[in-house]
Amino acid sequence: MRPPPTSRIIAALAILAVAVPSVAASAGTAETSSSGVALATVRNVNGAVLGTVSFYMVNRKTFVSGRLTRLSPGFHGFHVHTAGICDPKATDPSGKVVPFHSAGGHLNLEGVGHPHHTGDLPSLYVSADGTTTSITENDKLTAAALFDADGSAIIVHALPDNFANIPKRYSATGPDAETLATGDSGGRVACGVIVRPH
């Protein structure tokens, strides 16, 4: 008896999660060269661990994978931010407490608008049980980008990311400055400092 589609999808994701480091392990082949792993332990504003996000670099691409729990169901913006500081009691320039404001904005080495920032990733979809599994690949997130002078962090946002998709038929000017900066993905509900494994 064949397993139901959901079971097959979960099994495929598990296989891929194992396959990524396996690909990197074959660094001696002509086709593949691994440049290491980065990890982020993701916590909510109360300090509870929600899971881990891994960054595995193979040749010119970075595989980003992770499984998080205890999030609210639905879509959430998911980005790499400019500073490796996850302070849940951080304040903005006005002095207002804004959790994880310390991580700065989206990593944006090209100086462009969202969704073309270096740190822009596909949104997370969280199931009704509060869990999400994500595996994606990215050719912008290099080790140099992740580990610059002040490091970087992975952020989960409260709201869906619209990827600045505001056509002029909805707005005479298209996306505004806030949308181009954040995709209107709202506050920051979880954060993880991106580090090299010990």
Rank of each mutant, 00 (worst) to 15 (best):
G113I: 08
D92L: 09
A128Q: 15
N165E: 14
I85F: 06
K96V: 11
A12Q: 06
N165T: 10
R43Y: 11
S26G: 13
A19E: 13
L107T: 05
V97S: 05
L124E: 08
T179W: 05
T131F: 07
G47S: 03
G187Q: 13
S72A: 13
I194L: 02
D150T: 11
N108T: 04
G95D: 10
L146E: 07
A24D: 04
A12V: 00
P88G: 13
L13E: 11
A90T: 08
A144P: 02
S7V: 15
L159H: 08
F78M: 04
L50Q: 06
F78S: 02
D87L: 05
A103T: 15
A103W: 05
C86Y: 04
S7I: 11
R70I: 01
N162Q: 03
S34Q: 12
L71R: 04
A19Y: 07
V156Y: 00
L68E: 03
S35Y: 02
F63Q: 01
P197L: 11
H106K: 01
L50M: 12
G187I: 03
V80F: 07
A48Y: 03
A164C: 15
E110K: 14
E110R: 05
I15M: 10
G111Y: 01
S72R: 08
S94G: 02
G183A: 04
P88T: 07
D139F: 09
F147R: 05
H76Y: 08
S34W: 14
T41V: 15
L13K: 08
V64D: 05
L39C: 03
P3K: 11
F100M: 09
V20E: 00
G119P: 03
A11K: 08
A143F: 05
T82S: 15
V126T: 01
S7W: 07
P115H: 10
L141N: 10
T6W: 08
A48V: 09
P197H: 01
A83L: 12
A143S: 02
S127I: 01
G174D: 11
T118Q: 10
L146P: 03
L71I: 06
T41F: 06
H157T: 03
P160A: 08
S102P: 13
V45N: 12
S185Y: 00
G66L: 00
G119H: 04
H116T: 11
N46W: 09
T69F: 08
A48F: 11
I135P: 06
T82Y: 06
I135C: 02
H116R: 15
D139E: 14
I15E: 14
E110F: 14
F75S: 14
G183E: 04
I194G: 06
V23P: 01
T29M: 02
H101D: 11
S33F: 10
D139G: 07
V97T: 15
S34L: 03
L50I: 07
S35K: 09
N46M: 12
L107A: 02
F55W: 07
D161G: 05
S65Q: 08
R67Q: 08
D92P: 09
S102R: 08
Y56Q: 13
L141C: 09
G66I: 01
A90S: 14
F55D: 01
N46A: 15
Y170C: 04
A149G: 02
H79A: 15
D176I: 09
A144G: 05
D184L: 09
A172I: 12
N59Q: 02
S26A: 07
R8V: 15
L146C: 03
R2W: 00
R2I: 12
G51N: 06
I155H: 00
F75E: 13
E110C: 00
T41W: 06
D161F: 07
A19M: 13
H157S: 09
